[in-house]
Simulated assay, not measured.
Amino acid sequence: MRNRHVKVAVIQAAPILFDKQSAMDKISTMTKEAAEQGAELIVFPEVFLPGYPRGLSFGARVGSRTPDGRKDWERYWSSAIDVPGDETKQIGDLAKELGVHLVIGVVERDQEFSTGTLFNTMIYIGPDGELLGKHRKLVPTGSERLLWGQGDGSTLTVIDTPFGRVGGLICWENYMPLARTAMYAQGIDIYVAPTADARDSWQSTIRHIACEGRCFVLSCNQFATKESYPADLAYYPDIEQDPEVLSKGGSAIVGPLGEYIAEPLYNQEGIIVATLDLSEIVRSRFDFDPVGHYSRPDVFQLIVNETKQDIVQRKQ
């Protein structure tokens, strides 16, 4: 029997960019603060570890890259983590100490084939300290494609918990209708949507997903200022003329009929806490279930390739 109520927390903050220890310290501090408020599921923003490099060009133009830009990227690569690895073990120890589920956006280094590729990844840690799964962003957006590789269908992850099935997509892959459908088809109850989008249109997106999927949506963004950027970056001048607040946030929690449970938080760091009544999901699906009675498999079918896509196939 599932718990029908769960207290959740969405963290709106940013570490010092490229500073892995700064991110780890904030994860520890803010997780403890959320746990003290009774949160059982705690969500951190997109690539919180070690930060989202908003506004930086890394010296990249169409047809050319610069030596200094490569050095900035090397610094970003050095602050990424292995999954699993030392940092996931430390985060797991924290989750076990506090008895909470954690969902955290990280920059992941490829360990299997190439040490040169990074992924925009969301990791799931259980209250036993174990790494329960991960999701790699399917399509990095715009200039992000120079920083991160593409995930595949093997990490369209949904985690079964005592309070429901938890999963989600990262930022603009939430605009991919078929990817959303693949998540709904796994019986998702709590849909996690870490993002770097602070625009008003993102609020329409998360409310639509909640209403479409008949699920709770936890949207999580960083509140980032220029103070969180190391001034000794070669391409720090890229942001010198930008406003002091680089990302105003907008983290929010939405119910399964599309209404706010917690309104968007703007222009400050903070923790949004709310208690979810999972019975609302059942009630909301009375008149609409996108992969149940409101689907038409005789007309539409979705094929999801969940096979891990390896560049090298090793045969004995």
Rank of each mutant, 00 (worst) to 15 (best):
S204H: 08
W73D: 03
T181N: 06
F216E: 02
E112Q: 13
F286P: 00
K248F: 00
Y266A: 04
A35S: 15
L146G: 15
L233Q: 08
R75P: 06
E212C: 00
I261Y: 00
K89Q: 13
T275V: 12
E36D: 13
I188L: 11
K96Q: 14
P50A: 14
Q222S: 14
A23E: 01
G116T: 15
F119P: 10
E108N: 10
G69D: 09
K248N: 10
E36F: 02
I311T: 07
N174I: 01
G63H: 05
A39E: 08
G92W: 07
Q12W: 01
Y191P: 08
A9G: 12
S247T: 06
A39H: 08
L49W: 04
S228E: 13
F163L: 05
Q241C: 02
Y266F: 15
F113Q: 13
M176S: 11
V312I: 14
A14W: 03
P297H: 06
A34I: 05
G38P: 12
L147F: 10
C211Y: 09
D287E: 12
P84K: 03
I261P: 01
G213S: 09
K96P: 04
I91Q: 04
P256C: 11
L265S: 12
N267R: 03
V83P: 06
V107T: 15
E87T: 13
A198K: 04
Y229M: 08
L218Y: 05
A34P: 10
V273Y: 00
W148C: 06
S143I: 09
D152I: 07
I104F: 04
Q37C: 04
L94Y: 03
E227F: 03
V43R: 04
